[in-house]
Amino acid sequence: MGERIRFHLDENVDPAIGLGLRRYGIDVTTTNDVELRTQSDEVQLVFIQETQRVLFTQDADFLIIASSRLDHPGITYCKKGTRSIGEIIETLVLIYEVMTPEEMVGRVEFVSNESSSERRCLRRATPTHCKSMLLIGDRFL
């Protein structure tokens, strides 16, 4: 297997999400882990670029940043309060399983409202099939 996605969770993310991802063996850092709490979004962006980590955030400011530049290693976003911690973890695990770091460069993936049966279907599908069905907003690609 090739290189795997590594995530960075900003300070707006519940720490339980990092713990859940680590239980799946996923390499995760948090803003607190790397002592970037209260640092600007630009400093966070520099960190993910230097370490080649995909950012998971619930801060819409990163969507504005991502719309103006494509040189980031990838951003995953979920509006706070719209998904449970378990749903967020499931979706990030799915992204980890079917995407490569190279495929995430310059992309923004939204944690959306697909049902758990759709997530199970995607997990059973081949990686190529899953990639074509990743969610953007509330629609499958």
Score class of each variant (00 low, 15 high):
residue 27 D to N: 07
residue 3 E to Y: 12
residue 58 Q to A: 08
residue 27 D to C: 02
residue 84 S to F: 05
residue 118 E to G: 11
residue 130 C to F: 09
residue 31 T to C: 14
residue 126 T to W: 08
residue 105 V to R: 12
residue 62 F to Q: 00
residue 15 P to Y: 10
residue 9 L to M: 08
residue 25 G to F: 02
residue 124 R to D: 12
residue 134 L to V: 09
residue 107 R to E: 11
residue 78 C to H: 02
residue 18 G to T: 04
residue 50 E to F: 08
residue 114 E to D: 13
residue 25 G to R: 03
residue 132 S to R: 12
residue 116 S to T: 14
residue 85 I to E: 04
residue 117 S to L: 14
residue 66 A to T: 04
residue 124 R to P: 00
residue 11 E to S: 07
residue 70 L to N: 10
residue 66 A to V: 04
residue 112 S to M: 14
residue 98 V to G: 03
residue 52 Q to N: 12
residue 40 S to K: 05
residue 50 E to V: 11
residue 22 R to E: 09
residue 65 I to C: 03
residue 38 T to R: 14
residue 2 G to N: 12
residue 43 V to F: 09
residue 87 E to F: 08
residue 51 T to A: 08
residue 20 G to N: 02
residue 22 R to I: 07
residue 70 L to I: 11
residue 85 I to D: 03
residue 29 T to P: 00
residue 65 I to W: 08
residue 40 S to N: 03
residue 112 S to G: 15
residue 127 P to M: 08
residue 126 T to D: 06
residue 94 L to Y: 10
residue 71 D to P: 01
residue 41 D to M: 10
residue 28 V to S: 01
residue 131 K to H: 06
residue 17 I to W: 01
residue 94 L to M: 11
residue 85 I to W: 01
residue 74 G to M: 03
residue 16 A to P: 00
residue 115 S to F: 14
residue 60 A to P: 02
residue 18 G to L: 04
residue 129 H to W: 15
residue 136 I to D: 13
residue 135 L to E: 07
residue 134 L to E: 02
residue 95 I to A: 09
residue 88 I to L: 04
residue 22 R to C: 08
residue 28 V to A: 04
residue 93 V to L: 02
residue 124 R to I: 13
residue 72 H to S: 03
residue 100 T to Y: 06
residue 98 V to E: 02
residue 94 L to T: 08
residue 5 I to H: 01
residue 5 I to K: 02
residue 72 H to Q: 08
residue 75 I to V: 12
residue 64 I to C: 11
residue 73 P to D: 08
residue 136 I to Q: 13
residue 83 R to D: 07
residue 43 V to M: 11
residue 112 S to R: 10
residue 102 E to A: 15
residue 126 T to R: 05
residue 6 R to T: 04
residue 109 E to P: 00
residue 94 L to H: 09
residue 26 I to D: 00
residue 122 L to I: 15
residue 129 H to Q: 15
residue 49 Q to W: 05
residue 29 T to W: 05
residue 23 R to E: 10
residue 1 M to V: 13
residue 103 E to W: 05
residue 107 R to K: 14
residue 101 P to Y: 09
residue 24 Y to G: 01
residue 67 S to P: 01
residue 97 E to I: 05
residue 127 P to S: 04
residue 7 F to G: 00
residue 74 G to S: 06
residue 121 C to Y: 15
residue 120 R to Y: 14
residue 43 V to T: 13
residue 95 I to Q: 05
residue 140 F to S: 12
residue 6 R to C: 06
residue 27 D to F: 05
residue 62 F to I: 02
residue 75 I to A: 02
residue 102 E to G: 06
residue 141 L to E: 10
residue 10 D to C: 06
residue 138 D to Y: 14
residue 69 R to Q: 13
residue 33 D to S: 06
residue 74 G to C: 03
residue 118 E to K: 13
residue 99 M to T: 05
residue 114 E to C: 14
residue 72 H to A: 07
residue 126 T to H: 09
residue 57 T to R: 00
residue 69 R to I: 07
residue 108 V to H: 06
